[in-house]
């Protein structure tokens, strides 16, 4: 399923590329920003979304992909609700795009802040972020099974799972993991992924579900150990990271008897009511960004799943994901007012 999307994405992209080349001919139709484009990040500085957005800004500037400057703005308040509300309220100002993480779904569900992804115009899925189950390298657990057994043996709730934010992706995964394995963790929310990884290294939590990019430095330093990846298939990156191991060597959680998958959207949306031309402009821009070596390095560093989607496929994917989050969060008791 995903594969076919991927192929379609590239096909579409080629067409768009062609369209772009012939743009001068169809100059009347094509839209271009006439003012600086604001790139909203519904998260704080230093997080995964922030890093990705700033990387995009850097790439756009370095390769001169846009005539107008791109301005990155963090609007992290209310678990990102501030940023989403800002874009929702900017109908008719196409000089505004927003990068999303799972809080696109979780924030309105958990807090009741009035917005939904349907208030925005989908542009493109840039990549999907993986989640990996990590433990401290000094602990004896080498496989998921060993770790799950240890959690089962310990008194319920005495094992600590660290994660980013409350009632967001990390905690959703934790609850799903508890369900899949019949265990009970105490979930401790922290501010950012880097902090979570360091808390694991310092032994203040027993495990984390950090994104690869958040924990890779500690892995290379031999401080943490990956147990499994919450994806349907193993990762594709075959460069050695640490101890002769590669990202591709990490088994899927499914193959280890933990039947669950979770991937996080790293996608771009724009303001409600944006025209086709406007959306197309951003799709082309992102397509060009994806071609650069800097972007490819970033993808490799963070072991991202590089699925790219636009248009209806993307909207459909987002709709499915929203429904899934609704179910997951309902089961976990995370809905506002629940």
């Amino acid at each position: 399923m995903k594969r076919s999307f991927l192929k379609f994405g590239f096909g579409a992209a080629t067409l768009m590329g062609a369209a772009c080349v012939f743009a001068p001919v169809a100059a009347q139709a094509a839209w271009e920003p006439t003012r600086p484009v604001e790139f909203i990040i519904p998260a704080g500085t230093g997080g995964g979304a922030d890093q990705m957005a700033r990387a995009i800004q850097g790439i756009v500037t370095k390769h001169n992909l846009m005539k107008q400057p791109m301005v990155v703005i963090n609007k992290a308040g209310g678990a990102g609700g501030e940023g989403f509300l800002d874009v929702k309220a900017s109908r008719g100002n196409p000089h505004k795009i927003i990068i999303t993480l799972s809080n696109l779904f979780t924030t309105p569900l958990a807090t009741g802040i009035p917005f939904s992804w349907k208030d925005l115009t989908p542009v493109a899925m840039l990549a999907l972020d993986e989640f990996v189950l990590w433990v401290n390298a000094e602990k004896p657990y080498k496989t998921v099974k060993e770790y799950v057994d240890a959690v089962k043996k310990a008194p319920p709730g005495s094992m600590k799972m660290g994660g980013t934010g409350s009632k967001q992706e990390d905690q959703i995964i934790t609850v799903a993991l508890e369900k899949a394995t019949g265990t009970k963790f105490t979930y401790i929310p922290y501010r950012g992924g880097g902090e979570v990884a360091v808390q694991l290294v310092g032994g203040h939590v027993d495990s984390t579900v950090n994104n690869p990019i958040e924990a890779v430095a500690q892995w290379r330093g031999g401080k943490v150990r990956p147990l499994c990846v919450f994806d349907g298939k193993q990762l594709e990156y075959k460069d050695v990271v640490a101890d002769g191991k590669t990202w591709a060597d990490i088994p899927t959680c499914k193959s280890q008897g933990v039947d669950m998958e979770y991937l996080m959207l790293r996608g771009i949306f724009t303001v409600p009511g944006a025209t086709k031309d406007q959306v197309q402009y951003y799709v082309d821009l992102l397509q060009k960004v994806r071609e650069t070596p800097e972007w490819k390095d970033l993808m490799k560093n963070g072991a991202f799943n590089t699925t790219f989607m636009t248009g209806d496929q993307y909207a459909k994917w987002v709709a499915t994901e929203e429904a899934r989050h609704q179910t997951l969060m309902k089961e976990a008791g995370f809905l506002a007012g629940q």
Binding site: G77, G78, A79, G81, A110, T111, G112, I113, G165, S166, K167, Q168, P189, R191, F334
Partner: peptide, 8 residues
């Protein structure tokens, strides 16, 4: 937002 419970 209360960072620990995720409530407003």
């Amino acid at each position: 937002l209360d960072a620990v419970t995720g409530q407003l």
